[in-house]
Simulated assay, not measured.
Amino acid sequence: MTDAFIPLHVIKGRGAATRLAHRFEREVRDAYDDGWGTLEEGVAEAEGLQPLQTEVRFEDVKSVLGGNESPDIYFDRSINPYRGCEHGCIYCFARPTHSYLNLSPGLDFETRLIAKRNIVEVLRAELGRRNYRPNQIAIGTATDCYQPIERELRLTRSVIELLSEVRHPFGLVTKSSAVERDLDLIAPMAAAKLAAVYVTITTLDGELARKLEPRAAAPHRRLRTVRTLAEAGVPVGVSVAPQIPFVTEDMEQVLEAAWEAGARSAFYTVIRLPWEVAPLFKQWLALHYPQRADRIMARIREMRGGKDYDADFGTRMTGTGLWAELIRQRFEKATRRIGFNRERIALDLSAFRPPGAAGQGSLF
């Protein structure tokens, strides 16, 4: 694995700038100038490279429902139909999960994707266990369940079809307008208090969003998705996450626009830089904001007790210190003024009916 130079034309539309070596890598190579022109030769050779293409690999999984015991997260079970995410958000806390696949959390995370092709069969078996007790399932909490490959593979839709069949409550979070495709399933479930959707809008600045989240829907398109969902009767929340000092500076405007579009609940987190996300984010800052990179990282460390990241359950979502307190106050004042409900949307757990075997209908 290498952290070598990759020309900008090759990574156009991607969030990471390199195939950063993952933390389990035994050998790490880097490009350097040895005085003999080898660096220039490498650059010249790289100029012939074509833009990176997205590759999809399929896997058969043994389990689908992911458990969660973190006290700072509202759900205790989740489903992620895909590993890796083509949206390429540079700040994505899930990037380090690609390390377990012996892939780079950098460009591999957004170009080498894994689809769980047997997800519905396994989920049906898990929901049908005699000791299973329903609770809200969160869909797309690590990687976006409506990233571009969902248009063709339809794994998220197949999951929602099963949840609709067994009347199991779920909430999903996305940056994609593709969620509108599944309104025929989501709207009836929402009417029965079985579904809610949270749309992440990090900023209204389209140029910034293109750098932060290069293959996610544009901010104005996400607002239209919020409106479409709300008009269909779906409870919609907005996530103004992550908050990044001196980068995302329009939280109040995002909240106002989301309220106008129909969102009625809101939440935020501050940027998290676990494991390989920290060096990737620093590379991104050096590329896009070199003059303020040090100032941004200084504020992030201020919120993390002087470190790039602190995984403490009590503070990892909101940070600590003066800057974290300022963000919290801004959010609370804005949501109070606008009228947002900051509680999660409550769903009905009593309607669940365990599934029969695959392809077998119920007699009742």
Rank of each mutant, 00 (worst) to 15 (best):
T228D: 09
D294P: 08
A216F: 10
T200G: 15
D34G: 10
A31E: 13
Q253V: 00
E27M: 14
K175W: 01
D108P: 11
Q253D: 11
G359Q: 09
Q283P: 09
R129P: 01
R264Q: 04
Y100S: 15
D60Y: 01
Y74H: 04
E55S: 11
S265K: 05
A232E: 12
W284K: 08
L103E: 04
E343S: 05
L163Y: 11
D310F: 03
R154L: 08
A138F: 05
D250H: 02
F281G: 01
E213P: 07
C89L: 14
R221E: 11
F5D: 12
R342S: 03
R117W: 11
F267I: 04
E152W: 15
A261R: 04
I244V: 14
L208C: 10
R133Q: 05
E41G: 08
H98E: 06
S265P: 01
V159F: 09
K116S: 12
R130V: 06
L273R: 14
D72K: 04
F5Q: 00
R210N: 02
A346W: 07
E25A: 11
P242G: 00
R224H: 14
L285D: 05
Q53S: 09
E59M: 15
L162H: 15
F313I: 03
V240Y: 06
L153P: 01
H288L: 09
A115E: 00
S176A: 06
R154G: 05
R151Y: 04
A138K: 07
T269E: 01
L255G: 13
L285R: 10
S362E: 07
E165N: 03
N135W: 08
F352P: 11
Y309T: 06
W259I: 05
K175T: 02
G13C: 14
W259H: 03
G319D: 15
G42N: 12
T202A: 03
Y74A: 12
M1K: 02
Y132W: 02
D348K: 03
D348Q: 07
G84P: 11
R26A: 15
Y268R: 00
N131L: 10
E69C: 02
E343N: 01
R23A: 04
T143I: 14
N80I: 06
V61H: 01
V122N: 00
A178H: 12
R292S: 13
V197N: 03
R299S: 07
V270Y: 02
G84C: 11
K193Q: 04
G48M: 10
Y289Q: 05
K282H: 01
A257Y: 08
L223R: 12
V236H: 10
V56R: 02
R304G: 06
A192Q: 15
V173T: 02
R292C: 12
G339W: 03
L349H: 06
G15S: 00
L194G: 13
F340P: 02
P96R: 13
T97W: 07
A191Q: 11
M1P: 08
G233L: 11
D144T: 08
W284T: 07
G314V: 04
V166S: 04
R353F: 13
S239K: 02
F267A: 00
T38F: 05
V173A: 06
E256F: 06
A115W: 00
R19T: 13
A138W: 14
A334M: 00
I139N: 09
D348H: 07
I345Q: 03
L208E: 00
A298Y: 06
W275N: 14
E207A: 00
R19F: 14
G356Y: 01
I345R: 02
V10S: 09
